[in-house]
Amino acid sequence: MTSLPAPTSKKLGLVIDLDICVGCQACATSCKEWNTGGYSAPLSDHDPYGADPSGAWLNRVHSYEIGEGEDSRTLHFPRACMHCEEPDCVTVCPTGASYKRQEDGIVLVNPDTCIGCKLCSWACPYGAREYDHDDGVMKKCSLCVDRIYNDTLAESERIPACVRACPTGARAFGDLGDADSDVSKSVASRDGYGLLEDFGYKPVNKYLPPRPRRNSNIEAGTQASETIPAADNSATEKLFAWADRVLSR
């Protein structure tokens, strides 16, 4: 496809740790707040105080239940643009407004040339593009491009708003093209994965899976119980005998 840049070594993206995401929505509202006045300004809301409130959000947090009974679990699941390496959302765009940046792989919409045909949103398997009816253009996660390179911010602040806000530390930002980056290392050590890898868009963002549930973290979990005597009347006496010793203060 002619319109994707040649693959570059820098792949900026997010890593989301599903093991510690509590579904608090901080990333979602913080994203909305930053971006409604930032690169994507505005993120319009319709019927904000009425019967059918809806608006453009670049990041949404779902929760799911998996399975039933003993092994079931609840999963919180934030979802935004994956900044795919080979996404059709870019190639289907008739105007070139949807593009992937050569230098860092960020997928952006140029709000000045987008005609609002919505085709890119149809091409995204992750439902990550949001059309702004009011503004007439497509909006999407910008990876906070106006934060991460913003020289007016302190160096430590040059991270996406959602990462900055996330109270549990479930979100990390970095270069997934650099095997030595913290994000790449955490992906490697935790078996991080991209969503719908089979689909072929090569999502850059990665998710760290929930760790297995540990109903016992004690190797010798029975140690203490072994010393627990049978429930008979002697338990009290045994305890008293044990406790009857010189205990200096």
Binding site: A28, Y64, I66, F77, L195
Partner: peptide, 29 residues
């Protein structure tokens, strides 16, 4: 399950959607 990247044979059910009312993607697609 594949969309979430969770390896499981079990059924995955939405518990709470990100927003109460349908959003653009839901309306459109």
């Amino acid at each position: 399950a594949m969309a979430l990247g969770i390896e499981t044979e079990a059924k995955v059910r939405p518990l709470t959607p990100p927003h109460t009312m349908p959003n653009f993607v839901m309306r459109e697609m």
